[in-house]
């Protein structure tokens, strides 16, 4: 009789284990492809690329095979479906190069970028749908590096803690007139710090040895506090560094790519532009991704 009770208990435990595990597994399945929220600036040419991130169940019957952005017939999309692997999901990305041909004799260049909010998602079962991916600002044309350019961008780097920098050397005296980007709101909110260090303003600092890749130090002053216009002399160096500090899970799972435009003017009145890419690519932990999955299940 006693042994029979052990069997009954073991069978009950087995039943609980099966029901509990299957329930927990199903509760952590996404059930569809979900794109992260993107805030991206890019250019339609010049080899400029951006990434569109998405999350999919490992067991998904229908997988994202590619994406298409209307109006860019030459676009090159490179899929990375298993960019990062989690317990039950994959974080995938689509690397997009809009690859628009340079327009000849197109007249005055558009000053404003085109805003794209939706892309066409193409699935493995042959179906497709329009999906909202956030905001992608596509700037026209491409800034060509000219030999005459008074600013020479020399080096750059980034770190896994979402910091990075770009450095340049000034070949001729110029006046720094503006820093601009369509997505600088995030800096206003305090989640991105962008600093500029100009060697003539804070002597010597820009020529220090390069920082380790573990952390890139912010140097100089916040760009919004620099008094513009600012005269920069021949031989000075410019270092633009950034650091993202995402305050919440919701923010930390958004994708950012800013094109910070620095505008310089020579004495002759000729304008030059520099462009610094400031990227934020999410790297969620298993726990953060599980939370994202649960949140995504609640919102249709």
């Amino acid at each position: 009789m006693g042994k029979k009770w052990y069997y009954v208990l073991a069978i009950l435990l087995a039943a609980c284990s099966w029901i509990g595990n299957v329930w927990h597994y199903e509760a952590n399945q996404l059930g569809r492809t979900v794109f992260l929220e993107h805030h991206v600036e890019t250019r339609e040419g010049g080899g400029r690329v951006f990434d569109l991130y998405y999350v999919e169940d490992k067991q998904a019957d229908k997988r994202l095979s590619s994406i298409r952005i209307e109006g860019y017939p030459g676009q090159i999309v490179t899929p990375y479906p298993r960019y990062a692997e989690y317990q039950r999901q994959y974080l995938g990305k689509m690397m997009v190069n809009l690859n628009a041909p340079q327009k000849k004799g197109a007249g005055v260049k558009l000053e404003e970028p085109v805003l794209i909010r939706e892309v066409t998602a193409l699935y493995s079962d042959g179906s497709s749908e329009q999906v909202n991916v956030g905001e992608i600002y596509v700037w026209p044309g491409v800034y060509r590096q000219d030999e005459q350019d008074p600013i020479s961008w020399t080096s750059g780097g980034s770190s896994s803690d979402h910091s990075g920098y770009d450095s340049a050397v000034v070949k001729r005296p110029v006046q720094l007139t503006a820093f601009s980007s369509k997505l600088l709101d995030i800096a206003v909110e305090g989640h991105l710090r962008v600093y500029a260090d100009i060697s003539s303003q804070i002597p010597g600092t820009s020529y220090r040895s390069q920082p380790s890749e573990a952390h890139i130090e912010l140097r100089g002053e916040p760009v919004d506090e620099i008094q513009l216009p600012l005269n920069i002399h021949k031989g000075d160096s410019i270092r633009i560094s950034h650091q993202f500090d995402m305050p919440s899970l919701e923010k930390s799972l958004q994708v950012y790519q800013l094109l910070l435009k620095t505008t310089f003017m020579e004495e002759s009145g000729r304008q030059w532009h520099g462009e610094t890419v400031i990227p934020y690519h999410p790297r969620p932990t298993d726990q953060e991704l599980s939370e994202f999955v649960r949140d995504s299940r609640r919102t249709p």
Partner: peptide, 22 residues
Amino acid sequence: LHLFMAGQLLWLIVYPFVLNLD
């Protein structure tokens, strides 16, 4: 029989954990 049942029932209890644990 008891040896088999002990092993098999233990297996039936732990096997579904393959869904949720590494």
